[in-house]
């Protein structure tokens, strides 16, 4: 197992994703002799997990069952322990494409936070790219570095514990893309410019408030960035359900036999219903291109 390479069988030391339901997904560090409690009962790693195929159904002690899935950045995003507010897959997908990330890309990111986006970046830039990620909170930086190791992606990433607004990314002229998710991104635009390659690159800043966007765009323009574009992507999840709509009774039709049974009293159809509530805002995504300097 690795977050950047599929394998078929669960091994000691892997991180597996236990899937209970859509809203209930938990990461499990697989260890000989260890046990994991779920609401369906206990999972014994040595017998229930190790050697089994990813995607298998595992019967727990209380007779209930779960599926054990191969980790992916998307599953990790819904399973990871939150240490900060995180980016979700919808924004991550947009960021990945609009930053033009691909195998071999060199990316700078700050802050690392809980590493939700970091894992998605690593998956995309492997096996030849590199991620330089900066987190000013020491404990978070250490924790995320530990996770990268557990997930066997540490060879693709360098975690730096410093303040990106003051000290930059710790690299200059190497990045194809820069991503900023910090409270005052405008203070880091200069460092982003320095981190990008001489022949140019892409930058993205994620901010929840429009005032932050405003200041960032001003600084981006001042610093000579081009193609500045701000957008917002919202995910709508649809519930598939069967609905039944009753038909009113108009009474017997003239000319029709009075004994004829009523045709249909209701119509049944499959449709989707939008959720009653949905996330209405995560953040504005501002993209720009650094021209050749």
């Amino acid at each position: 197992m690795s977050f950047v390479e599929y394998s078929d069988f669960i091994q000691d030391g892997d991180v597996a994703i236990v899937y209970l339901s859509h809203s209930s997904v938990m990461p499990v560090k697989v260890q000989h002799g260890a046990q994991t409690q779920t609401r369906y009962g206990v999972i014994r790693h040595s017998t229930d997990l190790i050697g089994k195929r990813y995607g298998s159904k595992v019967t727990c002690s209380k007779g209930g069952w779960v599926h054990v899935l191969h980790p992916t950045p998307e599953l990790w995003t819904v399973a990871l322990p939150h240490r900060t507010q995180i980016l979700y897959t919808t924004d991550i997908a947009t960021i990945t494409m609009m930053l033009e990330l691909k195998p071999g890309s060199v990316v700078c990111e700050s802050g690392t936070g809980s590493g939700s986006l970091s894992h998605a970046i690593l998956r995309t830039i492997a096996p030849t790219g590199h991620l330089h990620t900066v987190e000013f909170h020491q404990q978070r930086a250490e924790k995320v570095a530990e996770e990268f190791k557990e997930h066997r992606v540490d060879h693709l990433v360098t975690v730096r514990n410093q303040d990106v607004c003051k000290d930059g990314f710790g690299v200059t002229g190497v990045a194809d893309a820069v991503f900023l998710d910090i409270p005052s991104p405008w203070e880091a635009v200069g460092h982003a410019k320095a981190a990008l390659k001489k022949h140019g690159g892409r930058v993205c800043s994620f901010s929840p408030c429009i005032e932050q966007v405003q200041r960032t765009c001003e600084v981006l323009a001042e610093q000579g960035f081009e193609e500045i574009s701000t957008l917002e992507v919202l995910l709508r999840v649809h519930d598939v359900r069967t609905i039944s709509l009753p038909l009113p009774d108009f009474g017997p039709e003239s000319g029709a036999s009075e004994n004829a049974p009523p045709n249909n009293t209701s119509v049944t159809l499959k449709t989707i219903t939008p959720p009653r509530e949905m996330p209405g805002h995560t953040g504005y995504l501002t993209f720009a291109t650094k021209p050749r300097t």
Partner: peptide
Amino acid sequence: LTDTWLRHYQV
């Protein structure tokens, strides 16, 4: 089953 909304801003 999902779809996405995309909104661009003039800043």
